[in-house]
Design a protein around this nucleic acid. Structure first.
Length: 855
RNA sequence: GCCCCCGUAGCCCAACGGCAGAGGCAGGCGCCUUAAAAGCGCUGGAGUGCGGGUUCGAUUCCCGUCGGGGGCACCA
């Protein structure tokens, strides 16, 4: 190895020329690629270089915000983190190479149950467990060569952070967007806490998979439903920039429907009851009426029912409450309910409709009561058939051959489609859409109906009966009621865990902190009690991307001016598991902050990349399954770069990576091959590339050109393949072509080093040093593409006869259609293939293809 | 039940409607080695799940079907 080590041309982050860690001096003089030695060599150098600081006020580079979802500090980093951060790093490092000032921060989503559970198990303060894990993860991230700006760390469990959760809570409270109300809530008996709707997955607790039950509690909510239409509408901004899948999930979750509120008089009740329906056109087909058994209305109606019915109702209600969410949602389940011996009056025809209480009607959607039209609604039909209620067809629905569909009463299949109204008085002869419009018009004339939009989305329940979270900054005073803690008394700090019973018992552990709970009312000065609930940790993560902009400000949650500069996030990277929860809440917070005048945008994340999971042998890794792959083992065995490269090369980023299908050893071999190229470059830095081997130069420039597009399109696996190709080409050039002294080889290897710096920063840095540059390949700059070198001198034109390849012609790229046609027809191979058949047409796609179609 | 995505070599994956293979893994053959492993070099291998259609031409577009994955699913 003979190349000169001289002052390189790497751009120094600090602008100085300090020559740290002269790479050549202590480097072993053999040609062995020693992963561990390379890692050990560069890590301290990088610390000094601090290439990824983004906070210099005079930085002239264009700004770009690349954000990785921050981790929960549950032990050390695992394979999933390794994938996520490898991919996010490719994007962040790419934009740095393109000359941008990239904000790429990291922090910890540090409040939450695992810390508390660990604390309970070991009798410690959750703080200890949390901060230890954070320290460990931080060290691992550093070793993993994540290009984070370490100056902007945040931890949501720091009072300096959660203080601003409280501050934001107060702003929402002032606007009426945070409120407390009693309701039936999702309750996880195992976690002993309430759950938001979003945290109940198929009737199970998202966290521990226990069946969720219902409980009546007074809880804090954020009024996210006020923003339902905007959360839906603004998704237009995200189309094409977020995965369709995520947008679809959010749309489903918000669940907008249009219909009408219709008033039904109730016998022996002065006030009418309003129901929501999406099919007001079928009013004439209503044959009964259903209320949710756990609604106030049901209780009231039952209270004035015959005595034996009251008893039945009480029993039924008990049964319903005992039914777990998962059973309730079972499609197989037969409809249940009881007749309350009360009647509603159909506003369109005065018919008496028997009122049932049945649990297929939900208390917290619409008005908790429905009109039932069994002919045209499957659920109503199922109920009608179970309880032997009449079925009346009012829409003539036809099949594709315009034949009327059979009577639902006979088939048991409701006809929900479009058709012409029948048996419906003034609506007869109208189609569905017209009938909906008409009936609303008729009934709204005397206020008995109104068009209405409804959402599946519910308000966000944020109270948690657990210790390790943000205290809700409200004081309850007997005289003043609910009082906000004034801003200047924030944060309301969590009391020490010592002495508190953290074990879940259904009420907040903070209730046990007597000195902490007992306080004075900020308004009247009298004795008062602090609210003892803590906030859902999704509050913490709903705005953390703003805190990164000014993590040290102690007078505001974030610097508005910095937000104007950096936000919205240009690229967000994270798992699809947060498709609904975190992303929906962050979008909501952003809109609230917009309305409060703190930010001037309405969507926080411009582009979203969802990476898949790392699995093993076809299933998710778990200790119990025995297929756990430890990241630390992989890093020890193959090195950081090989693992990062494997993550990027495995396939499209959104696909799962089955670790059994990929080859970190293969990645390491490739890296060694690439690294050795640098040792075979014998020209000096600054050699005139213009004189270099043209073919290799063309390959280099074409590769850079393609890789650029591939990276921007998140096609990292293909980008890596292109770099591999260039490495192979360069190897051949050195061994059997122009040789290592050719400046084109230096150019190619330098391009490989810079491109590899996105995926394999240690290897790239070492290559860079071997090429004779000062440290800092990360700041070397993306290779410029010489467009002239992309122009091919000749291209291969494929000549087909009847679609089969019969000949190839080398032609100039500018060849004319007519000339190419002549050339192709003149080909002996073509004539042979044609035989005595004539030529019908000749399709010419100059310069690549000619297809001769025989007669 | 409804909606979406994906089926290319033993495996992971590429291929503006135009030569089915870029890259990797595994396999085979060499080199190195006393030998083996490692390492290095070279290399065979599929007609694109299946059936139709559109087209001069289909892995690519359309319809159907099978298989895999995901989302939604008493929201009136």
């Amino acid at each position: 190895m003979t190349q000169q080590i001289e002052a390189g041309d790497g751009v120094r982050a600090d602008g100085s020329g300090a020559d740290t860690g002269r790479p050549g001096e202590d480097r072993p003089e053999d040609d062995r690629y020693d992963v561990q030695a390379i890692q050990a060599r560069w890590l301290p150098v990088w610390d000094e270089l601090a290439a990824f600081r983004s906070g210099r006020p005079d930085d002239p580079r264009p700004r770009r915000y690349v954000l990785d979802m921050f981790p929960y500090p549950s032990g050390d980093l695992h394979m999933g983190h390794a994938e996520a951060y490898a991919l996010g790093d490719v994007v962040a490092r790419y934009w740095v190479q393109r000359g941008h000032n990239v904000l790429h921060p990291i922090g910890w989503d540090a409040f939450g149950l695992p810390a508390e559970n660990a604390a309970i198990k070991r009798g410690l303060d959750p703080r200890e467990w949390t901060y230890e894990n954070i320290a460990q993860q931080k060290a691992s991230m550093r070793r993993y060569a994540c290009s984070f700006d370490w100056d902007r760390l945040l931890r949501t469990c720091d009072p300096e952070y959660y203080r601003w959760n409280q501050w934001l809570f107060l702003r929402l409270h002032e606007k009426g967007l945070a409120y407390r109300r009693p309701s039936q809530v999702n309750w996880c008996p195992s976690c002993q806490t309430v759950l938001a709707n979003e945290q109940v997955v198929a009737g199970l607790c998202e966290r521990c998979d226990s069946p969720v039950t219902k409980k009546k509690l007074t809880q804090w909510y954020f009024r996210i439903t006020d923003y339902a239409d905007r959360l839906l509408e603004d998704m237009k901004q995200l189309e094409g920039a977020w995965p369709d899948k995520v947008l679809t999930m959010q749309r489903n979750w918000i669940g907008r429907s249009t219909g009408a509120d219709v008033e039904f008089a109730i016998e022996d009740r002065p006030e009418p009851v309003t129901v929501y329906t999406t099919r007001p056109d079928t009013l004439f087909g209503a044959t009964f009426f259903v209320v949710a058994p756990d609604s106030d209305l049901a209780a009231e109606l039952a209270a004035r029912a015959p005595v034996h019915v009251q008893a039945q109702f009480a029993r039924y209600l008990e049964l319903v409450r005992a039914t777990s969410e998962i059973d309730r949602l079972s499609t197989e389940r037969e409809k249940s309910g009881i007749f309350l011996h009360r009647y509603a009056i159909n506003p369109v025809n005065g018919e008496r409709l028997p009122i049932y209480a049945a649990d297929y009607v939900l208390a917290d959607y619409g008005h908790g009561a429905i009109m039932a039209v069994p002919a045209h609604d499957q659920r109503d039909l199922d109920f009608a058939r179970t309880f032997d209620l009449p079925v009346r067809v009012v829409v003539d629905v036809r099949d594709e051959d315009d034949k009327p569909l059979p009577d639902p009463a006979d088939t048991g299949i409701a006809t929900a489609g479009d058709g012409v109204l029948v048996n419906s008085g003034p609506l007869d002869g109208l189609r569905k859409a017209e009938a909906i419009e008409r009936i609303i018009e008729i009934l709204s004339a005397d206020g008995r109906a109104a068009a209405k939009v409804n959402y599946r989305l519910r308000d966000w329940l944020i109270s948690r009966q657990r210790y390790w979270g943000t205290p809700i900054p409200i004081v309850h005073c007997d005289t003043c009621g609910e009082v906000r803690v004034p801003d200047d008394r924030l944060p309301v700090e969590l009391p020490p865990a010592e002495g508190l019973e953290l074990k879940p018992k259904g009420t907040s552990p903070l209730g046990g902190a007597g000195d902490w709970v007992e306080t004075t009312c900020p308004t009247c000065g009298g004795p008062a009690r602090r609210d003892t609930d803590t906030m859902d940790t999704f509050v913490d993560s709903s705005w953390y991307f703003l805190r990164y902009l000014s993590p040290d400000r102690d007078d505001v949650p974030f610097d508005v001016e910095q937000a104007r500069r950096w936000m919205p996030v240009d690229q967000y990277v994270g798992g699809v598991t947060h498709a609904i929860l975190h992303l929906l809440y962050s979008r909501f917070f952003t809109k609230v902050l917009h309305d409060l005048g703190f930010v001037d945008f309405t969507e926080p994340f411009t582009r979203l990349l969802n990476q898949g999971m790392v699995i093993m042998n076809g299933s998710a890794m778990s200790k119990s399954r025995g297929n756990l792959v430890r990241l630390s083992d992989q890093l020890t065995e193959h090195g950081v770069d090989a693992i990062r490269l494997t993550m990027a090369f495995a396939g499209p980023p959104e696909d799962d990576i089955d670790w059994a299908d990929v080859s970190p050893a293969g990645s390491a071999r490739f890296l060694a091959r690439a690294w050795r190229l640098a040792g075979d470059v014998t020209s000096s830095p600054g050699a005139d590339v213009a004189t270099g081997d043209a073919a290799l130069r063309a390959a280099t420039h074409r590769t850079v050109h393609e890789v650029t597009d591939l990276i921007e399109g998140f096609r990292f696996n293909v980008a890596v393949a292109r770099v591999m190709e260039l490495v192979n080409t360069t190897r051949k050039a050195i061994d059997t072509g122009c040789g290592g002294a050719d400046p084109a080889v230096r150019e190619a290897v330098a391009a490989v080093a810079v491109m590899l710096s996105l995926f394999a920063p240690y290897t790239a840095e070492d290559m860079w040093a071997r090429l004779g540059h000062a440290p800092g390949v990360a700041l070397a700059g993306w290779p410029a593409v010489d467009e002239l070198l992309l122009v091919e001198e000749t291209v291969t034109c494929v000549v087909q006869v009847a679609g089969k390849v019969r000949d190839r012609l080398e032609v100039p790229p500018s060849v004319g259609e007519e000339a190419l046609r002549e050339l192709a027809l003149a080909s002996p191979a073509v004539q042979r293939a044609l035989g005595d058949r004539g030529v019908r047409t000749v399709v010419v796609r100059a310069p690549r293809l000619v297809n001769v179609v025989p007669g």
